[in-house]
Design a protein around this nucleic acid. Structure first.
Lengths: 139, 139
DNA sequence: GTGTATGCAAAGCCTTTGCAGCATG
DNA sequence: CATGCTGCAAAGGCTTTGCATACAC
């Protein structure tokens, strides 16, 4: 119940959170590791994982378990959904969910006690659309 | 455009599809491998992966990229959603989506050309609810 | 017989974890 | 100074892939 507290405010933790917040690319842990390492060359991948885990528990970071078999991280923990490009795998935030009612009255569903949902759209991002239009499609 | 054809109807392929259809547990490839191996002791994990990939392309099998960083497979390729138990990680089909409108008019969304969506609920399954009620909650 | 599919094994990722030393509060 | 955190490295799991062989057609 009691919210876990950030025990120590290490430089590594600060930088990880800073970079994750600045990025809007929803990186995986290894991706974020490569970026953070430009500022902290001696940081380890394990530290990145441990901090993302901890920041996720606190609620400062959101763990995204979307498609692709990877776990991505989002520096914006507020409620929002995502679109993923099936061509370039880019993941983009959707700011205003277009007035849909996904949650089934928070009751039961097959006997489950429903606590929430995860919604992900997929499609083709603007860049990839251009790229394909330019080539006249054709697969 | 033309649907890829099942080139050869090998015993391995048959058994993989059979077992996946019988199971309602949405197994990962390694899990399915362990099961199939009871019938075909000499089958290899690589074969399981290759067949799941192929069966997925044909549309006989559905690839589920839900949470948990694993890829799971569903022997029922029809359109339906899933609930995942946050306690025991079980994944269950939802047969009748409760009349919701998820797709945003199939137009653009942040410039994306939307092709579809993936919706996953999470909550607590009946068994885990019982287990927790019995213990009077606590943690 | 031809060419696809298989079994085997290696390799590449992602992720977690044990441990000794460091540094935060 | 106590101990949470870090860096390092090993280990485990999932997934893909190259190759020679086997087998479906």
């Amino acid at each position: 119940m009691s919210t876990p507290i950030l025990r120590r405010n290490t430089l590594q933790r600060q930088v990880i959170l800073e970079e994750l917040r600045r990025l809007h690319s929803h990186p995986t842990a290894p991706e974020l590791y490569r970026i953070v390492r430009t500022r902290l060359p001696r940081i380890s991948l394990g530290t990145v994982y441990r901090n993302l885990e901890l920041l996720g528990q606190i609620g400062l970071v959101r763990r995204l378990e979307l498609g692709g078999g990877e776990t991505r991280f989002d520096g914006d923990p507020s409620q929002h959904d995502h679109v993923r490009c099936i061509r370039c795998a880019e993941v983009t935030d959707i700011r205003q969910p277009p007035g849909l009612r996904v949650e089934p009255a928070f009751g039961t569903l097959s006997g489950y006690r429903i606590l929430g949902h995860r919604l992900e759209y997929y499609g083709i991002c603007p860049d990839c659309q251009q790229r394909e239009d330019r080539r006249g499609d054709g697969s």
